[in-house]
Design a protein around this nucleic acid. Sequence first.
RNA 1: GGAGAGAUGGCAGAGCGGUCGAAUGCGGCGGUCUUGAAAACCGUUGAAGCGCAAGUUUCCGGGGGUUCGAAUCCCUCUCUCUCCGCCA
Length: 423
Amino acid sequence: MLQLNFLRQNRELVLERLAIRNFKENGLVDEVIGADDKRKKIQTGADELLARRNNISKEIGGLMTKGLKEEAEEKKKEVAELKTEIEKFEKELNAIETEVHNLLVRIPNIPSPLVPAGKTPEDNEVVKEGGIKPELFAGAVPHWELTTKYNLIDFELGNKITGSGFPVYKNKGAKLQRSLIQYFLDYNTAAGYIEFQPPYLVNEDSAYGTGQLPDKEGQMYHATADNFYLIPTAEVPVTNIYRDEIVNESLLPIKMTAYTPCFRREAGSYGKDVRGLNRLHQFDKVEIVQLVHPQNSYDVLDQMVLHVEKLLQSLELPYRILRLCGGDMGFTSALTYDFEVYSAAQQKWLEVSSVSNFESFQTNRMKIRFRDSLGKIQLLHSLNGSSMALPRVLAALLENNQTETGIRLPKVIHSYFGAGEIN
RNA sequence: GGAGAGAUGGCAGAGCGGUCGAAUGCGGCGGUCUUGAAAACCGUUGAAGCGCAAGUUUCCGGGGGUUCGAAUCCCUCUCUCUCCGCCA
């Protein structure tokens, strides 16, 4: 969520920038400021009453120790009058605080000046295209046929065990996936990211911290008996590692990476977009997260984009980088780059990574702060990105590298996979 | 799952219903001493809201209650530890 003081001081700018998102509820900004004004008044009133009560209570204490019971009783009567008024104020204060908070969480992050206007994915800006689209031979097929042909993934079996969207990887399919995960993690740790293996179920506070709750509740699987949520991305447990922490500036930047399965309900998405590996309820992903000094978060964003780009290049996949338009960007993000790979048999671009700067939007909620050189406490900036989502990378690798006799694999994973080809 | 104990500042650990935002130790920061460092000594050191400031309010796991007054008493939830049971 945004910082109230920032909203107050930059009201015009905020409204202007939110328009880029096609954010309709512009009134919210003034509403929240108005509610906060009210909050301040009530709080000042309540504080005054509490101060009076505290003083009288101290006096009573003094009188009691001196044994002046009657005087003490007089004072007690005085406090009794204050009491009902205090209760009234506290009730009001509680109500207004909740109101301010509820309004504030409905305002999305402010898009960075780089974010293009636009409403739909068509308005995203292609900032770069790389790699070479392969020319496939005549009998080339989409990955869901290749996975059957080479006995790599069993979608039907997943249907039996769980339901659709839960594929069973097997034989060389399982090994290829494991090889890629291993390669991605090694690549990330070589760049200074610390590897984590976090829990795959999180509590409400964590889901709230990264912004999945309250608004995206339907996206997550919910283990109701214990009120845990299955993680939709490693971003949730990993970013929450630093929730409610004040770190020393010398520890920055904090760079973390984690491989986890991701669980998404994807309610309401059916049809050919979800064919094969294109959209799943459970999939594997390697994530990178950084917590950085607010001054250089945009430099870090560029570094992370370059990091993912090099990874894609090493896989020899045709890719493009999109700068998301205001309408396509996530609620919590200030600037997002999506990476897509070209899956030649489907003749489709598939999103394999999304790298975002959240500035202080998440850290404000999670109270992730640092002490600067002057001893002042400030919010950090948080960023994350996939490096990368496995299924679509796998889909593109299979489709693009198929030959009549097998599937060639990019050099970088030969040593991990133990072979250069699947046949 | 059963029985018991506990949750206090960065950490460890005191705390009688009233001057407790909280002893003490460690750590951190600043200083003295030193060519420099260590040691020693002195000082300082939680967060948030309101306020120009002085100051004031809130926070001792979360929520609720008793009381003029709660870290301290009561209820409840969560978590941790010990023992037993089960177990990869």
